[in-house]
């Protein structure tokens, strides 16, 4: 009985255990527990295990600082708000350009041939290398940050919406055609629904890249934003604040990927299973 219930939640138990061991080990490094413990055995060599707070903040200090910044001073909220704003606006722009463009490019054969090499080149380039150019074009303010996020997010969205249309079974299109469906109707009832899983996969990739965009786009900024906060804290050796910023991005990333996973599962339920094996 006990064994069964352990096996049922083995994943959770082992995961929590590993995490706890990791946090204790980390705390011990930052607080010099391990150095003190091994002092008798190793002598002064044990001091290697005592890491100065400038290099490593302890989990308890990070938690305390996070609590301060979120609920006492509230100073993180403006940073978080602006970064979230950049992310959302960047995503909306990338999606509203990328999806229609990709779908249309995939729908027409010659157009598809025309954009294929461009997409391949865009995909092979690390778009963040364009950052100095973006700064030259629009400075380091909000437009530049949103632009770099759009640049990063639009690539997987474009590629996936293009690929989505290219993989539609031509039989369906021919069938609809022979019942004289209009191009718009074809688009709405066949192309778009068939494209949805691909589009969502593209969105999932885009979200990851959008977060890169936030961090990278804020390298040059000097006012507000989570990335800016991390950079400023890093260059002033406030390691605890750096960790709070990273933690914020970790939580945001986990939440976002969970949201997309939920939506994907929903769509999969809705999607007729026959299409997979045809």
């Amino acid at each position: 009985m006990l064994r069964e219930s352990y096996l049922a939640c083995e994943r959770g138990i082992l995961g929590a255990l590993a995490m706890a061991v990791f946090l204790v080990a980390w705390e011990g490094l930052a607080r010099g527990w391990w150095a003190d413990l091994l002092q008798p055995a190793l002598g002064t060599a044990a001091n290697v295990l005592r890491i100065r707070p400038i290099f490593l903040a302890s989990p308890s200090a990070i938690a305390e600082m996070a609590f301060q910044m979120y609920f006492v001073t509230g100073e993180i909220w403006p940073h978080l708000g602006l970064s979230a704003f950049e992310f959302v606006v960047g995503f909306l722009i990338a999606a509203s350009i990328g999806i229609p463009l990709g779908l249309v490019a995939g729908r027409y054969r010659l157009l598809s041939y025309a954009v294929e090499p461009l997409l391949a080149a865009l995909n092979a380039t690390p778009q963040v290398a364009l950052l100095p150019l973006v700064v030259l074009w629009m400075g380091t303010g909000l437009p530049a940050r949103i632009f770099i996020i759009v640049l990063l997010m639009i690539v997987p969205i474009l590629i996936n919406s293009h690929a989505a249309v290219r993989t539609i079974d031509p039989k369906w299109l021919r069938l609809a055609r022979s019942f004289s469906a209009s191009e718009w109707r074809l688009f709405r009832t066949i192309v778009l629904p068939a494209a949805v899983p691909f589009l969502l996969a593209g969105v999932r990739l885009a979200i990851g890249r959008g977060m890169i965009g936030i961090v990278v786009g804020e390298i040059y900024g000097s006012a507000v934003g989570v990335g800016v906060m991390i950079n400023q804290a890093g260059s002033t050796f406030q390691t605890t604040r750096v960790f709070v910023g990273i933690l914020t991005i970790v939580v945001a990333g986990l939440v976002l990927s969970e949201v997309v996973r939920r939506i994907e599962r929903r769509v999969e339920v809705w999607r007729p299973s026959t299409s997979a094996d045809s």
Binding site: I54, F55, G208, M211, I212, V215, V216, G227, I230, N231, A233, G234, S235, F237, T239, V242, F243, G245, I246, I249, V250, G253, L254, L256, S257
Partner: peptide, 15 residues
């Protein structure tokens, strides 16, 4: 996997 690893750059540079 949920975070861009470039987020850790300030720390890595410190280290």
């Amino acid at each position: 996997n949920a975070v861009p690893r470039v987020t850790f750059l300030p720390l890595l540079i410190l280290w």
